[in-house]
Amino acid sequence: MPRLSVVNSGGANLSSVLFALDRLGITPEFTEDPDVITSSDKVILPGVGHAAHAMKILRDKNLIGCLKSLKQPVIGICLGMQLLYSSSEEGDVECLDIIPGRIQEFSKTTGQAVPHMGWNTIKTQGENALLKGMDDNPYAYFVHSYAAPVSEHTIGKTEYIMPFTAMVKRDNFYGCQFHPERSGEVGETILRNFLEI
C-alpha cells in the first residue's frame, strides 16, 4: 500500500510537485489507477490549466467516483483545490462537489492585474494544521485567475481584488490555491505538515 499517491490529473507542470516531494525525501506513487489512489494513506491532487478541461480528464480516467469517496487526507493544489468545489465559472463546469461553493473569476475591472501572480500573505482562519509551526501571515506563491470565495470551510484567507480562500478544509479534504511546491520554505513546511496529519 503506497503511503502517498499523486494523482496524474493530466496537463503539464505536474513534475514540480514530484520534485518538491523528492526534496523532502519522499517518492510518491504517481498514478491514475483508482485502486492505488483509494488504498494509499494520503492523496495529492495537483492541477494546472483549465477547470472544464481538467474535469474532462478526470471523467475520462474514471476518477470522479474514486476521488469523491476518499476517506484519507487529500490535498488539492491550485486547480486541484478548485476542482474540490461544487462548480467553476471557468468553462461553466460542475466539479467534484466535495466542498460547497462556486469558483469565480477575478473581476478585471478594478485596475489590478489578472492573473493574480506572485507572493501574497495567508491569514489563518480558525484551526489550520497545515500552517503549524509557522510565523503569522506567511507568504506563498500564487498564480490564478479564478478563486474560491471565503466560506465556513476556509482555513486560510488571502486578499487580492477580493478576499478569497487560499486554504480550505472540509473533513479529510484540504486545498491550497497557491503552489506549495514553489513557495520556498513555507511551502515545504505545508507539505510536511500535510504528510504528518
Partner: peptide, 8 residues
C-alpha cells in the same frame, strides 16, 4: 533547475 528550486 526544477529539481533544485523551491521558487518559481
Amino acid at each position: 533547475v526544477a529539481r533544485l528550486l523551491n521558487i518559481p
